[in-house]
Design a protein around this nucleic acid. Structure first.
Lengths: 111, 111
DNA sequence: CGGGATCCCTACAGATACTG
DNA sequence: CAGTATCTGTAGGGATCCCG
């Protein structure tokens, strides 16, 4: 869901959280939170089970949502660096809290 | 993704957060956090754009994940009440923090 | 009232091949 | 190196009908 919810255009869950509630966004954001700047290939290596296509899609969406900054350098071979925007960085403490909760309640939820 | 991730069986994002990263779980949890106990129909009315099937599915999954408790009474007509488990309640502050973040950064993310 | 079962369509996601 | 483009299978999700 990339469009604004027609029925609840100001609902934060539907319009903001829905955008990072997919399979890979939190994982990518989390990695970028740990590493300041990362190249495309570094992200691929950090997340071995993500496919080429999904990493590209996820990064594109996160960039559209102004959570990730993309800097491309006109070199040969090309170099592209990804980093969190200020908004993206401001989400990291909340992600950390969610991960803490997930870790604490892992057994209870998954069993 | 209801199964344990074979590659990262202990990753909290993949195995716990993935379960509530769908279209409706956070909204249902949020409503149950506000109301203590809710009947099926109350939830339907609180979330007018959820379909019958998805509310049923979402509640079933949340119950399997021990986040929601389901109490059915053998009356006619039947009465079923849903509430948060202790684990479910412990997630509410984190959801609140995420919603606060989403509200604060709404313009930046959605624009 | 609170579901379950079914049909059906679309978006997501993997695999593969190609390009500046 | 860091992407696009295409094909294809699968799962998510809506609409409808049925049931204890």
């Amino acid at each position: 869901m990339r469009e604004v919810d027609l029925r609840y255009p100001t609902c934060p869950i539907r319009n903001v959280l829905a955008r990072i509630s997919d399979k890979w966004s939190l994982i990518v954001l989390w990695n970028l939170g740990l590493n300041e700047k990362m190249r495309y290939k570094e992200l691929m290596l950090s997340i071995p089970d993500i496919s080429h296509k999904m990493l590209t899609n996820t990064l594109k969406h996160l960039e559209e949502d102004h959570l990730v900054k993309r800097e491309a350098y006109a070199e040969i071979p090309p170099r592209v660096e990804y980093s969190l925007t200020k908004t993206g960085k401001s989400l990291i403490p909340t992600i950390e809290q969610m991960i803490d909760w997930a870790q604490t309640n892992f057994e209870e939820v998954v069993k």
